[in-house]
Design a protein around this nucleic acid. Sequence first.
DNA 1: CACAACAGTAGAACGACGTTCTATGAACGG
DNA 2: CCGTTCATAGAACGTCGTTCTACTGTTGTG
Lengths: 198, 198
Amino acid sequence: MTDVRPGAGRTPSRAVEQALVDAAEQVLVRDGLGAVTVRAVATEAGVAPMGVYNRFGSKDGLISAVLVRGFDGLRAAVSRDDDPDPVARLLASGRNYRRFALGRPQHYGAMFGGRPLPTEGAEELLAHATAAFEALVDHVRYGMARGALREGDPLETAQVIWSSVHGAVSLELGGAVLTPDPAATYESLLQLIVAGLR
Amino acid sequence: MTDVRPGAGRTPSRAVEQALVDAAEQVLVRDGLGAVTVRAVATEAGVAPMGVYNRFGSKDGLISAVLVRGFDGLRAAVSRDDDPDPVARLLASGRNYRRFALGRPQHYGAMFGGRPLPTEGAEELLAHATAAFEALVDHVRYGMARGALREGDPLETAQVIWSSVHGAVSLELGGAVLTPDPAATYESLLQLIVAGLR
DNA sequence: CACAACAGTAGAACGACGTTCTATGAACGG
DNA sequence: CCGTTCATAGAACGTCGTTCTACTGTTGTG
C-alpha cells in the first residue's frame, strides 16, 4: 500500500483517494446513507473535508466511487454461478441478486434508492451499472441459444427479469413484503419468471 | 372549505393544516422532493415554519400526510377497473399502476423511494398503503375464485405481482429501462405474469 | 544552490436546512 | 371582565454541503 506517484511525480497521494472511498463505504455500511457526510467521512479517513473536493469534486463524486464498487459487486454476484443448465443458471443468478441486496442493503439502497444518481462521475457509474445488467443479458442469451428460453429480444427479456427481482428485493429492503416468508415468496417469483419464459 | 372547529371550539384552524398539505404537495410536484423544505412549504402556504411543527410534529409528519394522499390515489388507480373478466381486470390494474406512477412520479418516488419512510404518522401511512395493496389482493382472490388464476395463497401471489410491477415502474422512473419502448416492455412483463399465474 | 510557481492542505466562513426557543397576541372558562 | 392557554411569528442553534483564505511542502529553472 501507500503506492504513491504512479505515473509522474504528480499526484502526491492517491492513497488519500482510496482512504476516502474506504471511509465512505465504512460509514455507509455502519451508519447508513444519511450519516455519510463530508465531515464524517473526512474524519474517518483522517483528512480534512477539503480532501473530498480536491479528489472527487463533490460529495456526489465520492459517493459515485462507492457505488461503482457496489455495481461491481452486483455484477460479480450475478455472474458468480455458471451452471451449464440455462434455467439453473438464471435461478442461481436471481438468488445471488437477492443475497447481494440483503447482504449490502445500504449499498443497494444507495444504488437504486430512487433519488437522482450523483451527477459527478455519472458516466463511469452508468458504465459499471450497465456491465452488471449485461451479465444478466448474457444469461438470457445463453438460455435462448440453448432453447431453454422462448425466443425473443434478450434485452427486453432481461429487463423484465431485472424489473421483477429488483422490485422484490427493493420492497423487501423497504419492509414492504407482507408475506410471512420473504425467501419463499422470492422463490415463487423466480419460478413464475422461468415458467413464463419457457 | 375553511371548515374550522369541527368538534369543540378547540383547534382554531384546521384550514391551516389543509393549506400546508396542499402547499407541500404543490412544491413536491413542481420542484421535487428535495425542494420540499419546511420554510418553502410554510411560505407557499402563507404560514410561519412553526406551523408545520404545531400541526404535524415534524417535517416527516407533513410528508406523511402528503404520502397518505399518494397511497389513496394509488389504491384508486388500482381499483378503478372492475372488468368482469379476472385476467382483464388484473391487466387493467397493472396498467393503471404504471399510469399512476408515471403521472405522479414525485409522489411515487417519495412513497417508495427507498429512504426510510417518515416515522411521524407511520401507522396511518401504513394503513393507507396496506389498503392499496389489499385492492390488489382482492383482484387476485377474484381471479382464483373464478378459476382464472391458479390456486394459491392470494397474499403471496399479490406480493409477487406487486414486486414485479413496482420494480418495473421504479426502474422506469429512475431512467434504468434500457429497452427502446418501455411501454411495450411493461406489457411483456404483465403478460409474463398472467401467463405464469394461469 | 537559491528562488519563483504551484498543487494540496487545514481551518474558518457562508448560506440553507431541520428544529427549538422566546415573546406576543388572540381566544376561551370563570 | 380578567387570567390562562395555546398557536403564532421571528430569532436562534447546530449541522449540512460547499467555498474562501492562508499556509506549507515540493518542483522545475536560473
